[in-house]
C-alpha cells in the first residue's frame, strides 16, 4: 500500500492564531476522511472570515484540541520558527512474528501542516518601538496588523483549497470504508520534533519511514 503525503503550504501565524488555524485545517482534513455517516457542522472562525466543516464528533474535537495544546506547548518551549504537525491515517495489521503478536501500522496517508510562528515577544516589542517613532503609532500598527491578517486569511483559504484538491485527485489509496459512523479510519496526530536546522532532514526521514511502514514498528 502506498502512502500519499501532502505537504500543506506554510502559514505565517502569530501565536494567538495557532489554535484557530490548526483547528480549521485539522477538522477540514478529517471531514474529508470521515467517510462514515456524519452530520456536518459549520464552524465560523473568529479571526477570519472563513467557515470550515467539522464532522460533528465530540470525541474528535476533544482529541484535536488536546493535540493543539501540546503543539502550543511545544512552540512555547522551543521557539523555533518552523513548526509542524502531522496527521496520519493508517490501518492496523496483526502480524505473528516468532511467538509474539505484533500490531503493525500501515500508513496510507499523511498530512503535514507547516506553521511559521512569529516570534511573539520580540517582534511585538520591536514593532511597537518602531511605531512609536513613527508619527501615528496606533494606526500604522493596526494597519499592518489587518494587512497581515488578510494575508493569512488568504493563505489559509489556499491551504483549504489545497486539501480539497488533494482529496479530489487522490482517491485510489483510500482503503474501503469500514462500516462505522464518523471518522471511520484510524488516525493519529503527531508533532514531529524538529529544530530549525534539522527540519528538512527530519521530514525526509519521515517520508522514508512512511514509504516503508514496517520500519516504524
Amino acid at each position: 500500500m502506498n502512502c500519499e503525503v501532502c505537504q500543506l503550504k506554510e502559514l505565517e501565524v502569530e501565536h494567538f492564531e495557532i489554535r484557530e488555524v490548526l483547528r480549521c485545517i485539522l477538522h477540514t482534513i478529517l471531514f474529508h476522511r470521515a467517510l462514515g455517516l456524519v452530520r456536518p457542522k459549520d464552524v465560523d472562525l473568529e479571526l477570519f472570515e472563513i467557515t470550515y466543516v467539522q464532522c460533528g464528533d465530540v470525541e474528535l474535537e476533544k482529541k484535536i484540541d488536546e493535540k493543539i495544546d501540546q503543539f502550543i506547548d511545544r512552540v512555547e518551549k522551543h521557539p523555533n520558527k518552523k513548526n509542524q504537525i502531522c496527521l496520519s491515517f493508517y490501518e492496523e495489521k496483526k502480524q505473528a512474528v516468532w511467538f509474539t503478536n505484533r500490531v503493525e501500522r500501515l500508513y496510507w496517508e499523511q498530512w503535514y501542516i507547516n506553521l511559521n510562528v512569529a516570534q511573539q515577544p520580540k517582534s511585538h516589542s520591536g514593532k511597537s518601538h518602531y511605531s512609536k517613532v513613527v508619527v501615528d503609532p496606533g494606526e500604522s500598527a493596526l494597519e499592518e496588523r489587518s494587512h497581515r491578517r488578510a494575508a493569512l486569511e488568504a493563505s489559509l483559504r489556499e491551504v483549504l483549497f489545497q486539501i480539497i484538491k488533494f482529496v479530489n485527485e487522490k482517491k485510489d489509496h483510500v482503503p474501503p470504508i469500514p462500516n462505522l459512523e464518523g471518522v471511520s479510519f484510524l488516525y493519529e496526530i503527531t508533532i514531529p520534533s524538529s529544530s530549525d536546522s534539522a527540519f528538512g532532514m527530519d521530514m525526509f526521514k519521515r517520508m522514508l519511514q512512511t514509504g516503508h511502514p514496517t520500519m516504524l514498528s
Binding site: F31, H32, R157, F161, I163
Partner: peptide
C-alpha cells in the same frame, strides 16, 4: 465531501 467544503470556501 469536497463539494461540501468547497461550497463554503
Amino acid at each position: 465531501r469536497s463539494l461540501y467544503a468547497m461550497v463554503r470556501l
